[in-house]
């Protein structure tokens, strides 16, 4: 295995993050703080607690998921799209590196950045609300798995996209609505019966539900099902990345 290549890709991506620290870290932290002020303090104070959890606390896992998903996707997508866009990908493709090493380097850096952002959001949230985490190991498991699998998904988008519009298309038109409609700010029980059934087709519901369970033991679906969903999504992304590299999709002619 070409460990040096993984190291330099990882460090190069992390350096890119450091060079754009305001955009990379401050921006998600500020937007999360705004969510807390608007939903948690202003509106939340008029909403009764959900299953014994105050509304301001209830939305913390959903808000973290919102940032983790969007950040993981955009970091990884941009990480591989940019060298494709400016032509420097030739160097990676002509180096003695397997696709596994390329993926570990780029996706690993993106997932690490998301983990850092998620942790910062968690710390920020603790300033606004009184947080408790009932199952820390499960919480970390969901946290890490989400960062990795959605970074992989972002990597796929970055490989697929051949312009900046496509790069934004899926995160903006699919992921954001799915996160908002997946119970970030509410429990599925609060929806009418018909919409409860529709929501069950939203894969993000399972992520948020499982993650929320690890905090408060409150969930919309069983934690086993949530774990199975995230692992299935991870496996699907890995298979797709493997297929893209095997066929040289948009990388080798």
């Amino acid at each position: 295995m070409n460990i040096q290549a993984i190291r330099v890709i990882f460090l190069n991506e992390m350096r890119r993050t450091r060079n754009s620290i305001l955009q990379s870290v401050a921006s998600p932290v500020i937007s999360t703080a705004l969510y807390f002020i608007v939903f948690g303090a202003a509106i939340g104070s008029r909403i009764q607690s959900i299953e014994g959890v105050s509304y301001g606390v209830f939305i913390v896992p959903g808000l973290m998921m919102l940032s983790l998903l969007t950040q993981s996707i955009s970091n990884a997508a941009f990480g591989i799209f940019f060298p494709k866009f400016n032509g420097t990908i030739y160097e990676v493709m002509s180096a003695p590196i397997s696709f596994v090493e390329i993926v570990i380097g780029y996706v690993g850096a993106s997932a690490t950045k998301s983990l850092i952002i998620g942790t910062i959001i968690l710390i920020t949230a603790s300033f606004f609300v009184d947080l408790r985490i009932e199952h820390p190991i499960w919480m970390v498991t969901f946290f890490v798995l989400t960062c990795i699998s959605f970074s992989l998904f972002g990597f796929i988008i970055g490989l697929w996209a051949d312009n900046f519009e496509k790069l934004q298309l899926i995160p903006l038109l699919i992921i954001t609505p799915l996160v908002f409609l997946g119970g970030s700010f509410y429990s599925v029980d609060m929806l009418p019966a018909f919409w409860q059934k529709v929501t069950l087709f939203n894969p993000v519901l399972y992520l948020i539900s499982g993650f929320r369970w690890s905090f408060f033991e409150v969930s919309d679906v069983s934690v086993g099902l949530s774990l199975a969903m995230i692992l299935s999504f991870l496996a699907a992304c890995m298979t797709l990345v493997w297929f893209m590299f095997k066929t040289g999709y948009k990388l080798r002619s």
Binding site: A5, V8, N19, F82, N86, T88, Y90, E91, V92, A95
Partner: peptide, 29 residues
């Protein structure tokens, strides 16, 4: 193998030393 491409394909936001060290690492050194 080392390859110097025809186009001036460089990541313009990098420093000279960093981009050369990056290439060395990519090739496993």
């Amino acid at each position: 193998i080392g390859l110097v491409p025809q186009e001036l394909t460089l990541s313009v936001f990098d420093k000279v030393r960093d981009t050369v060290a990056f290439s060395r690492g990519l090739f496993g050194k």
